[in-house]
C-alpha cells in the first residue's frame, strides 16, 4: 500500500531543535532517513516545502476565483514536507513515521493513498 506521510512542525519546537547548529543535525537525520528508505525501495517520493509565508491558497466559489496569501488552515503546526512510501501495512508506515525528525518537533500524519487500479 502507498501512504503519504505529511510532516508538520511546531515552529517553536523546530526552532529549538535547530538552534544548536543551525539545523545541520536535523538535516543530516532527514538525509539519512531518505537514503535508508530509498535503498530499501520503500520511497516513492518526498520533498521539503518552503515555509508557510510562501503559501498561496486558491478557492473557487460561485464561479469566482479568489487567491489568498497563506495556508488553507491556520494551525500552530505547519506542513513542512512529505514523503510517499510504499509498504505492506500501516504498521510499517508508522514505523517509518517514527524515524522522521518532525515527529519529535511536530507530528507526522499518515494517510493511505487511494488506489484506483484495484476493484
Amino acid at each position: 500500500m502507498k501512504y503519504m506521510l505529511l510532516l508538520a512542525d511546531d515552529p517553536e519546537l523546530a526552532a529549538a531543535a535547530n538552534a544548536p547548529d543551525d539545523g545541520q543535525a536535523v538535516m543530516q537525520e532527514y538525509f539519512a532517513f531518505t537514503t535508508r528508505i530509498a535503498e530499501s525501495g520503500e520511497l516513492v517520493a518526498g520533498d521539503a516545502l518552503h515555509a508557510v509565508p510562501t503559501a498561496s491558497t486558491l478557492r473557487i466559489r460561485n464561479g469566482s476565483t479568489t487567491v489568498t496569501d497563506g495556508p488553507f488552515a491556520e494551525t500552530k503546526e505547519q506542513i513542512g514536507g512529505f514523503y510517499v512510501v510504499e509498504v505492506p501495512s500501516l504498521d510499517r508506515a508508522l514505523e517509518l513515521a517514527a524515524q522522521i525528525p518532525a515527529a519529535k518537533t511536530g507530528s507526522v500524519e499518515v494517510r493511505p493513498i487511494m488506489d484506483f487500479s484495484a476493484s
Binding site: 500500500m1 505492506p88 501495512s89 500501516l90 504498521d91
Partner: peptide, 10 residues
C-alpha cells in the same frame, strides 16, 4: 481496511 491496519502478532 482503507488504512491497511495489518492482522498478525507483532
Amino acid at each position: 481496511r482503507l488504512a491497511g491496519i495489518p492482522f498478525g502478532v507483532p
